[in-house]
Each structure stands twice: as structure tokens, then as C-alpha cells.
Amino acid sequence: MPLLNQREFKADPWTFLDTSEPVPSGGDIVVPFERLVSDFKTLMLHDGQLGVAFPNNLPVTELEPYLQRLQLVTLDFPAFTDGRAYSQARELRTHFGFKGELRAAGNLLPDQLGFMQQVGFDYFEIADERFSLDAWLDAATSISLSYQPSFTSRSQMPISTARGLADTSAPDAEDWPEQPHYG
């Protein structure tokens, strides 16, 4: 499945393991949250990067004990109308300062991409092959301004910044490291 990041489709370098597949000796792996919890003692020693696929019906506070070890969190959109992962992403980025890769998976559509970038997602698993790269990019860049502070997207300028107001009032945004930008 192609991965959208920095304006292009890329191959996914991570290996997803389900609850029972054996852990390879190295390489970057993603495991379901339940396995992260049950096998954490082993997984934390894994020789490679570690990621988790986290469901959208649990509070992200449950991820807190593991975040130090995680380089990737995948959040789920079981249906594009189910917007819980937008809040989860925002909480991971702002409350817990998660700086790794934040990936959106599930039922993604081009017209939601802009919102996802604003709340902190930077990688997108594109399961739906109907849409061209241009369709994704055009939809995501159709609005160049935003009334809200934006965390990973440069394609949308916060209007408060444009008005010369919110230069400083967003400490979290300032702390925010340069993410691989999309816009």
C-alpha cells in the first residue's frame, strides 16, 4: 500500500506484525496496541524502530507509558466520518509531545487530508487507489489559510499569524520540531 508523505507516494519501509507473527531479528516493526502491551518487555529490546497501531476507541493516555520507545503511531479511521483520531493525533502531538511519525490509516479521502495534516499527521496510508497523487495534493492544498493553529502543515497559514497576532501565543507550536512538511 503506498504511503503519502512530502508530496509523493512512497513504499512503506515498516513491517506490520499481527498479534501472533514472530518478531524479526531486526528492522522497523509496527504491532497492534494489545501486543505492545502484552509483549512490551521483549519489544522494547527490539533491534530496530518500534511502532504501534492504536485503535480509535481508547484514550491515548494508555499510550503514555510506551511513547518514549515508539517512533511511529498509526491512528485509525474505520470510516472517514469517524473523526476520533483527529483528537487523538492532536493530543499525542500537543499533550504528550510525540515527535515521531504519526500515520493515518483506514478510510482516508483526499478532502480530509488537509485536516489531518493540521492536527499533526505526517504519513498517510493510501488504501484507495481511485485517486491520483494530484487529486490528493490538490484537495489538501485548496485552502491556504486556517483559523486554527496548525502543527505539521505549512500549506495552511494560521490566519492569526497572517494578522500578525499569534506570533507567540502558541508555545507548543514553537516547540514543535520541523516535521517533514507536506505543503
Binding site: F80, T81, D82, G83, Y86, S87, R90, Q112, G114, F115, M116, Q118, V119, I143, S146, Y147, Q148, S150, I159
Partner: peptide, 13 residues
């Protein structure tokens, strides 16, 4: 009104 317009987090409540 401005803050809620196209709010990225709250468009799929």
C-alpha cells in the same frame, strides 16, 4: 465563528 470554521479536529464529530 472564526475559530470553528473548518476546524481540523472537529469536522467529523
Amino acid at each position: 465563528r472564526q475559530w470553528s470554521s473548518l476546524h481540523p479536529e472537529f469536522s467529523f464529530l
